[in-house]
């Protein structure tokens, strides 16, 4: 099972390597990891996407909690939440396909953030499924490269027992 786990940590020197070292040292896998500041400058938030059976996930959250610099660990599996990630795609469509690429970008509520003589750089934000779908759609037109951020997640205001959020409804 894949889990998105957010880890609130003291914003201290070396804390990232404590967390990543825990995963590598114990053979847990990290699918993605993103780190950023929070409203309190002394605290950072890491969002980690990992996978494993229940016992492994239990170990992961307990081991994270055990790290001295970790303030709080939230496994979003049990919580109604919103997840987002972003991708920057440098597409290089043939001249004839340019319009089509622009249209798709529009449909996915993306933006063109840069353009060269033969390329568009497209920014798309959404959940993983949306981003994967967009990449698949653009691929046939030619992608030079793309970069993805890790996932970030935040709990929904009214926390109900999670009915699996249908991602489509999410993005209208």
């Amino acid at each position: 099972m894949r889990h998105t786990i957010s880890v609130l940590v003291e914003n201290k020197f070396g804390v990232l390597s404590r967390v990543s070292g825990l995963f590598s040292g114990r053979g847990f896998n990290i699918e993605s990891l993103s780190v950023g500041e929070t409203i309190e400058p002394a605290v950072s938030l890491m969002t980690i996407v990992t996978s494993g059976d229940d016992q492994i996930i239990e170990q992961i959250t307990k081991q994270l909690n055990k790290l001295i610099d970790v303030i709080k660990v939230v496994d979003f599996m049990e919580i109604d939440h919103v997840e987002r990630e972003m991708v920057l795609i440098k597409a290089a469509p043939k001249k004839a396909d340019r319009i089509e690429v622009l249209k798709l970008t529009e449909i996915f509520r993306g933006r063109i953030v840069d353009s060269g003589t033969t390329t568009y750089t497209i920014e798309i934000t959404g959940d993983e499924g949306k981003i994967n779908a967009f990449i698949e759609l653009i691929k046939p037109f030619g992608i030079k490269e793309f970069v993805r951020t890790g996932k970030v997640a935040i709990a929904r205001e009214r926390v109900k027992k999670a009915q699996i959020t249908t991602e489509k409804k999410e993005h209208r």
Binding site: Q55, E58, Q59, K62, Q63, N65, K66
Partner: peptide, 8 residues
Amino acid sequence: IDPTSIRK
């Protein structure tokens, strides 16, 4: 005392 010892 160490929660990680339990069910490891």
